[in-house]
Amino acid sequence: MGSLSAPGLWALLVSALAMTAIVGGRYLATSGLFALITRRARPGLYAGMDRQIRREIFWSLLSAGIYGVPAGIVAWGWQAHGWTRIYTDFSAYPVWWMPLSVFLFLFAHDTWFYWTHRWMHRPRVFRIAHAVHHASRPPTAWAAMSFHPVEAVTGAVVIPALVFLIPIHVAMLGLVLTIMTVMGITNHMGWEIFPQALVRSRLGHWLITASHHHRHHEQYRCNYGLYFRFWDHLCGTDRGISTP
């Protein structure tokens, strides 16, 4: 990064703090929204879980700070120095590249998540890094970012790293972050929000929803993916869907 002037350091700090606030605010708003939807659609599902939910919120807001720092550094580097491959001109790449870039980001993120997730299920690593997340039994809409700091670090570096490697329009990056947020929450809500026609379809055979991820929280050593079931199918760790 080289030496930074005092204004440069201040701008970097402000960017990191701003992104931390954005990540934390996004978490509270989106998890709160889906918790409200749960209250309306499944009354009483979270009854008696106030203590667990408070714990999930605590760990999630701590994770927001860990996610916010690399995001803030990337935002600062992009705006101040043009370090990343984020672009704003729609004509910079062919139109077909925009959806492809979204898929590449999601697939790369899913690949990283699958293998780090399997690693965190090794007994010693699990006790240190992943037990916090699995303390949510069953998970709620507030559990999507309920991570130990070690686990949060493994998740926080992925998208910031990818923007240095894969060109992506800023709007498509926003779409990636939206998908990441919605999938992270809906997979942990404790019930299936998507229609069974999708979940049990040929497409659903390759996508992860709450029905798939809930089985991971039940059996631990299966269904490790984040968005897609590709690696679970390929590696023989897919155990089908549950009925949350």
Rank of each mutant, 00 (worst) to 15 (best):
S3A: 15
S5M: 08
S5P: 08
G8Y: 05
L9F: 05
W10S: 11
L13W: 01
L13E: 01
L17W: 02
A21D: 08
V23H: 01
G24S: 02
T30G: 01
T30K: 02
S31A: 15
L36A: 15
R40A: 14
R40C: 06
A41T: 12
P43V: 04
Y46S: 04
Y46H: 13
A47I: 03
A47W: 10
A47K: 13
M49N: 04
Q52V: 00
I57F: 00
F58M: 08
F58Y: 14
L61T: 09
L62R: 09
L62I: 15
P70M: 02
A75N: 03
W76L: 00
G77F: 01
Q79L: 14
H81E: 14
H81F: 10
G82T: 00
W83S: 09
T84C: 09
R85H: 11
R85G: 02
R85E: 10
W97S: 12
P99H: 06
V102Q: 09
V102K: 09
F103C: 14
F105A: 11
F107K: 05
H109G: 15
W112I: 13
F113G: 08
Y114T: 08
T116I: 11
T116A: 02
R118D: 05
M120H: 13
R122N: 11
P123I: 08
V125G: 03
I128N: 04
H130A: 11
H130T: 10
A131D: 12
V132E: 15
H133A: 04
A135M: 12
S136N: 15
P139D: 09
W142E: 07
A144Q: 14
S146I: 01
F147S: 07
F147A: 04
H148K: 12
P149F: 06
E151L: 09
A152Y: 06
A152P: 07
V157F: 12
I159H: 13
I159N: 10
A161L: 12
F164L: 14
I166G: 10
H169G: 06
M172L: 10
L173S: 06
G174S: 11
G174N: 12
V176S: 10
T178R: 06
M180C: 05
T181R: 05
V182W: 09
M183D: 12
G184K: 02
T186C: 05
N187P: 06
H188C: 06
G190L: 00
W191M: 01
I193N: 08
L203F: 02
L203I: 01
G204K: 00
W206C: 11
L207T: 13
H212K: 01
H213Y: 01
H217A: 03
G225I: 05
L226Y: 11
Y227L: 07
D232M: 13
H233E: 06
L234W: 15
L234N: 08
C235K: 04
C235H: 14
G236P: 09
G236W: 04
D238G: 08
R239S: 07
I241L: 04
I241Y: 06
T243W: 08
T243C: 07
P244I: 00
P244L: 00
P244D: 00
